[in-house]
């Protein structure tokens, strides 16, 4: 699927991968959010079909206002590139229903600190739309386990219908023992049900 295309006809799910887009000028994902295909992704999401945004893909979804809040520069001033632990906070949604316990996935980002105003954060919590939180090996949302200063240790969130997931960790980098782990499969294997 090329960014200039304007139709998602025939597709069952959309995964927006990480990386960089349009130099991430202005803000991460800001220009990609206006790419021709994104208005179709918005319609696809509104129709309740599964959409997953990983890392820069998460930034694009927030910039496109498909997900609330924003991802800003890590509070520790450093690009963070290491394996972290997250735990699912809601396992009733399409993407997260196969997740349980503590999952290990790599993060690689400079702007991964999730923020939103108090009202939005409260709504996300009340509506059970916090999908993943950074946690210790015991599954506790400690400050030490938070790699970027995200509000409430948030690593990923859902839209109001629960069909759109945005997350900073990279599940696609842990899908085989050869890659150092298989924890990402619990999310990506959901594609077989899309």
């Amino acid at each position: 699927m090329w960014h200039r295309e304007t139709s998602l006809q025939g597709f069952d799910a959309v995964v927006i991968p990480g990386g960089f887009t349009y130099g991430d000028y202005l803000r991460g994902g800001a220009i990609a959010a206006l790419a021709p295909i994104l208005s179709e992704v918005r319609r696809f999401a509104e129709n309740g079909l599964p959409v997953l945004g990983i890392c820069n893909g998460f930034q694009i979804l927030t910039e496109a206002h498909i997900l609330p809040g924003a991802l800003v520069r890590n509070s520790g001033r450093k690009f963070v590139c290491r394996k972290i632990a997250v735990t699912p906070h809601n396992t009733d949604s399409f993407w997260t229903e196969g997740c349980k316990g503590v999952l290990h996935m790599p993060v690689a980002h400079n702007e991964g600190r999730y923020i939103a105003d108090e009202e939005t954060l409260e709504r996300l919590e009340q509506e059970r739309r916090v999908a993943f939180i950074y946690c210790s090996e015991e599954g506790e949302p400690t400050d030490e386990a938070n790699p970027n200063g995200s509000a409430a240790n948030i690593a990923g969130i859902l839209n109001d219908r629960g069909n759109v997931l945005g997350l900073m960790p990279h599940p696609e980098r842990v899908v085989a023992e050869l890659l150092g782990g298989t924890d990402g499969r619990s999310i990506l294997e959901r594609l077989s049900d899309a």
């Binding site: 202005l26 800001a30 206006l34 927030t62 910039e63 609330p68 924003a70």
Partner: peptide, 9 residues
């Protein structure tokens, strides 16, 4: 509002 700034931040 549409591109140059992000009103959230």
């Amino acid at each position: 509002r549409k591109l140059l700034s992000n009103p959230v931040i």
